[in-house]
Design a protein around this nucleic acid. Structure first.
Length: 355
DNA sequence: GGTAGACCTGGACGC
DNA sequence: GCGTCCAGGTCTACC
């Protein structure tokens, strides 16, 4: 029997918003404590509020594939929340779903790269007719906090995707606050800063990342005046890109790839987090040849015309390729899909024609 | 500034 | 079922 729930007032969404498409737009939607249910096109997750952890379920009744967009979200919580708590839930969802991203900025992206605008030719060529692709994709899912985005990025470095899935599940189960109905939150910086690295390694399978994760958590608990991390400085649009990048690569466990990835999670899309997947994409999809170093340079040049939207152009190409192999992302199951994204599986994919 | 090797986990493969 | 190989980005030592 499902737990008793309370419905909130509905949350408005931007006119172009489709939950199934825009929530399932980045791999983190498959990582705990995020829990997407393809059968109902809704997701559950435990949010850490000031008063404690609470499970919410988010759906978008009325949104129709390729037809109706911008329907309001319906939010259910497992317990009754007061106004302040609902405000915190709303703020978390706005960040996760990028509901506050300026439509004009997304419009400027579509002007630079019309492939992702309404009824684009490329959308059809990728056989997305059955997907909830809808008019103009541009928003990318992320975490409710900057801290979670940073730790998730560290767990995705130098590891295959199934291991990243396991690490995040075990982090939540071992160290996340538990709700009365058995859900787990993502561990807070306070919690991770107090964990012994050896314990983290043994219980969560994070390997050599143990010390780096604990050090990062401690930095999030340290005031900026004493050399700690100030999330507001990173989230501030007025902070220059170069300053953020230079600060990120100084952090433990954060190199060029992780820094560029965290920057796109901050809504700064000019830099490309290039990795071995990028090399595969360059060869299999873009038809490029040459050494890995050459391909990295050619990829940078290839996406340079998209300027401040370079990552979006790159990512939607990559994501659409994945959907061409596995079906629309909103149909993916977390556990069964994970193995489809191993390097071995993707290497078996033949050359793809993007024209 | 560039490069080689270590770091750790889990999937793939051979026996 | 077991052992071995390999993929993956960051860090450090070294040239």
């Amino acid at each position: 029997m499902p737990p008793r729930t309370f419905i909130s007032s509905r949350f408005a969404t931007p006119a172009d918003y489709i939950l199934a498409r825009d929530y399932c737009s980045y791999g983190y939607f498959l990582l705990a404590p995020n829990d997407w249910d393809p059968s109902t096109a809704a997701f559950r997750r435990v949010l850490s509020l000031a008063s404690g952890a609470v499970t919410v379920r988010v759906s978008q009744p009325g949104a129709n594939a390729n037809i109706e967009t911008g329907a309001p979200l319906e939010i259910y919580a497992e317990k009754k929340l007061n106004r302040d708590e609902w405000t915190q839930v709303h703020a978390s969802l706005v960040r996760m779903l990028r509901l506050d991203e300026d439509a004009a900025v997304i419009g400027s992206f579509h002007k630079l790269d019309p492939r992702w605008a309404v009824k684009s030719r490329s959308s059809r060529s990728f056989n997305l007719k059955r997907s909830k692709s809808g008019p103009g994709r541009g928003r990318l899912m992320r975490s409710p906090t900057f801290f979670e985005d940073v730790i998730k990025t560290v767990t995705s470095c130098n590891v295959t995707w199934p291991s990243t899935v396991n690490m995040n599940r075990r982090l939540c189960e071992a160290l996340g606050e538990r709700t009365p109905t058995g859900g787990y939150a993502f561990p807070t910086a306070e919690k991770l800063a107090r964990v012994n690295p050896a314990t983290l390694r043994a219980r969560c399978g994070v390997g050599y990342r143990d010390q780096r994760i604990v050090d990062l958590a401690k930095l999030f608990r340290t005031p900026a005046s004493r050399g700690g991390i100030d999330p507001a400085w990173y989230e501030n649009p007025a902070t220059p890109d170069d300053e953020i990048y230079n600060a990120l690569v100084e952090l433990p466990g954060i190199g060029p790839y992780a820094a560029a990835n965290i920057m796109q999670l901050l809504g700064r899309y000019a830099r490309l987090p290039l990795d071995t997947e990028s090399i595969r994409h360059a060869k299999n999809v873009l038809g490029m040849t040459g050494s890995d170093r050459d391909l990295m340079k050619r990829l940078q040049a290839h996406y340079a015309p998209f300027g401040p939207h370079a990552f979006r152009s790159y990512w939607f190409e990559l994501w659409t390729f994945y959907e061409s192999r596995q079906g629309p992302a909103w149909t993916w199951e977390r556990e069964t899909t994970a193995k489809a994204f191993t390097a071995a599986a993707l290497k078996k994919v033949p050359m793809v024609d993007l024209s």
